[in-house]
Design a binder for these strands. Structure first.
Lengths: 89, 89
DNA sequence: TCACTAAGAAAGTCTTAGCGA
DNA sequence: TCGCTAAGACTTTCTTAGTGA
């Protein structure tokens, strides 16, 4: 995936990572990546250079505490609804 | 992507397609695919053999009338919340 | 340590050309 | 017409090895 395909993933990922106070590399390692590849891969995801497979998305969602649907949500209003649902769990 | 990566995409896609009463090929063509590739590609998506890029996901979501987030939602309860939000738009 | 990147290796998707029901 | 599939063509992601702040 390149950064011109309209995916909200890069932005939502960065939002959630910053909220947790993690570096790109830290987040990758916590999500189970090898420490030598975590920095490059997470940076590529966050800049929309590449897109991860869903197994990786699940791992990131667990570390960051957000539903997987959040990463793919185009509408800001729905993104809030998703986060509110998560908070009420 | 293969069908063992835990993505809810195949199931959610099929659900939404059946609700609309479309064939796999019809849906692909309506989403802008060449009529010679629509059947194979849609079948691969629905069976989890391959995963589409986000541009394709946006096209499918517009034809089916569901938010893109719905396709990637793991939790049934949240999926209902997403569909309720869409219905109230 | 941080964010970030080029480029080859590796792994993925897409197209073609079919199948049986 | 429907759902579905193998396999080669094609395109993507991942890893390595770095950069500059």
């Amino acid at each position: 995936m390149n950064n011109t395909d309209g995916s909200p993933f890069p932005t939502r990922l960065k939002q959630a990572r910053i909220m947790r106070g993690l570096s790109q590399k830290q987040l990758g390692i916590l999500a189970g990546m090898d420490r030598f590849v975590a920095s490059a891969r997470m940076n590529q995801y966050e800049r929309g250079v590449h897109a991860p497979d869903f197994k990786t998305v699940i791992a990131l969602s667990q570390v960051l505490g957000v539903p997987t649907a959040y990463f793919y949500c185009l509408e800001e209003e729905l993104a809030s609804v998703i986060m509110d649902w998560k908070a009420s769990c």
